[in-house]
Simulated scan of single mutants.
Amino acid sequence: MNALHPPVDGWWTLLYRGWTLQMPSGVRVDLTEIERACFLCLLSNPRRELLRDELMAARRRTSMRTLNVAICRLRGKIRKAGARLPLHTVHGVGYAFLGNLRELSSA
């Protein structure tokens, strides 16, 4: 764990321009390009919703299937690291992040 960025209870933190996700436990997970795009979209939405249409408009090469597979893999990656990602499916709309999410720009 990095002493410059100690974990805050309950906070999920994007580091290194969004390429690394730090879980509340302090464990860090590297993100793929599409995973990073999802989190940046969540940060730009004050209600922390990831709307499929918005993400697919921002990433022209992304289909609904690609997005769903990426989210499934991300959940598995986080579960393997010992946590449960608070990203919930909103059927027909997209996803909602029900945890605390922030980005530290200095990392």
Rank of each mutant, 00 (worst) to 15 (best):
N2W: 03
L4H: 05
H5G: 00
P7W: 05
D9A: 09
G10C: 02
W11E: 09
W11L: 09
T13A: 12
L15F: 08
R17M: 04
R17K: 11
W19D: 13
L21T: 01
L21A: 05
L21K: 04
Q22C: 11
M23Y: 03
P24F: 06
P24S: 07
P24W: 09
P24H: 11
S25A: 12
S25M: 08
G26H: 13
G26D: 12
G26A: 11
V27R: 14
R28N: 06
R28C: 15
V29H: 10
D30I: 04
D30A: 14
L31F: 12
L31Y: 11
T32L: 15
T32Y: 14
T32I: 11
T32S: 15
I34K: 06
E35W: 06
E35M: 10
R36N: 14
A37C: 13
C38W: 11
C38G: 13
C38D: 08
F39R: 13
L40E: 15
C41Y: 04
C41R: 11
L42R: 01
L42C: 05
L42S: 03
L42G: 03
S44T: 01
S44A: 13
P46D: 08
P46H: 06
P46S: 07
P46V: 01
R47P: 00
R47E: 11
R47V: 06
R47W: 06
R48V: 01
R48Y: 11
R48A: 02
L50D: 01
L50R: 00
R52K: 05
R52A: 12
R52G: 04
D53H: 08
E54V: 13
E54N: 07
L55T: 04
L55C: 03
A57S: 06
A58D: 10
R59H: 08
R61L: 00
R61T: 07
T62W: 04
S63W: 01
T66C: 08
N68P: 00
N68G: 04
N68F: 03
A70W: 01
R73C: 10
L74V: 04
R75M: 07
R75H: 15
G76A: 10
K77Q: 12
K77T: 10
I78Y: 09
R79V: 00
R79G: 09
R79C: 06
K80W: 08
K80H: 13
A81N: 09
G82A: 04
A83C: 10
R84H: 12
R84D: 14
L85H: 06
L85R: 03
L87R: 03
H88Y: 12
H88G: 01
T89I: 07
V90R: 13
V90Q: 12
G94T: 02
G94K: 01
Y95L: 00
Y95G: 03
A96Q: 09
L98R: 10
L98Q: 07
G99V: 02
N100R: 08
L101F: 13
E103Y: 09
L104Y: 14
L104M: 14
L104C: 15
S105L: 15
S106R: 13
A107G: 14
A107Y: 15
A107E: 15
